[in-house]
Amino acid sequence: MTKPRILQIGSLTGHPPADAELAARYEVLELWKAADPQAFLREHADSIEVIATSANIGCKAEVIQALPKLRAICSWGVGYDSIDVDLAKSRGVIVSNTPDVLNDCVADLAWGLLIACARNIAWGDRFVRANHWENKVGGLTLGTRVSGKKLGVVGLGRIGEAIARRGQGFDMQVAYHNRRARPEVPYEYKDSLVDLATWSDFLVIATVGGASTRGLINESVLRALGPKGILVNIARGSVIDEPAMVQVLSEGALGGAGLDVFDKEPKVPDALKTMNNVVLMPHVASATHETRRAMTDCLLDNLSSFFANGQVMTPVE
């Protein structure tokens, strides 16, 4: 039996078995291995109806425009700011992602960063490994209590809600900022980001990426959070004005930051690497065996569903 053909834009390195599982089910055209990608697209343009990609790799306008018979883009990952969704929709191309399956692991990491930053866990680990404790080099650093404090969430979607629920387990007051208020949730709505930051002890960013949120967390918001406030970002690096964050942290006008994402990753500002009140992670919020397995399964289900009936299981609306 002839396998359906798909174009895979890049290797799904976030889950090593994924490439082989795609190849077992489909005839995969591997764009990332082509010496001349544009020539490769021209050669196969009339036979490509479906693209497989990821949130990190995305799908640019020039790829969509090069494929006149394209009908679906199935992405591995929840974010879709790296895909030209508007162009795809204008062409009648369905776009899917892998939502929900990663909510808990991303929320868990947000809380890991929050606690690590508040309680100086990364600093303490370095302190012990360097034998400073044993050799009585320097003094211990006091941290910040987490329980009973005020938690602000920017973006109360699926992941934001999972983060907020965990806050209740720490006896925290929870408030949020969203594009619109959600009267059905038990949290206070703040219609101003500055007001939310001023109110919060911890501010967690869980909003979508893309042009609409670039620089949303600007210098005014960062200064409103203040010298005792802690910022956590598991969304997209572009959401924060990164130079402003570095400046405010350098001044001591922001208490600390736990960051899994960066504006120009994998490049991280060198200044952040020298700060003991900053915890850095390499964009791994969904990187658990269980979640990456579920993401791959969701991608495969979307592809299978499309080839079976022309629809996907989790469309980007």
Rank of each mutant, 00 (worst) to 15 (best):
L151K: 06
R166P: 03
D86G: 10
P183R: 14
S212V: 09
P17Y: 05
L259E: 06
A235L: 08
D263T: 12
A23N: 01
V146L: 11
R91E: 05
C59E: 03
I57G: 03
G148L: 10
S250D: 11
L254I: 01
C59L: 07
T314L: 02
L12G: 09
A110K: 11
E290N: 11
K264Y: 00
A20F: 00
F127K: 12
V278I: 14
Y187T: 07
R179T: 11
K149C: 03
S305T: 04
N302K: 04
E134N: 05
L12H: 09
D270Y: 02
T314Q: 11
M1S: 03
A271W: 01
V50F: 07
V268Y: 03
T2M: 00
F262T: 00
Y176F: 11
G237C: 07
Y187K: 12
I64K: 01
V174M: 09
D201P: 05
I6M: 03
L87Q: 06
D125E: 15
M1Q: 05
T274D: 13
S220P: 00
A116T: 08
G252I: 09
K267R: 11
L216E: 00
V239M: 10
I159H: 03
E242Q: 15
S250W: 06
P17C: 09
V194T: 11
S250A: 15
L87W: 06
I6H: 01
H15Q: 13
V95M: 10
D46P: 00
E251G: 08
I163N: 02
G252T: 11
G237P: 06
S96M: 06
W123N: 12
L216C: 03
R71L: 13
A66G: 11
M295F: 13
F170C: 13
T213V: 03
R292N: 08
E161T: 14
V239I: 07
G92V: 05
D241T: 05
Q247C: 06
I94V: 15
M245H: 06
K264D: 05
R293Y: 00
D241C: 09
A52V: 02
D104F: 00
P17W: 02
M245D: 10
G10P: 00
P315I: 12
N233M: 02
E219L: 01
D270C: 04
L303Q: 09
R5Q: 04
V221R: 01
I51S: 10
L303F: 01
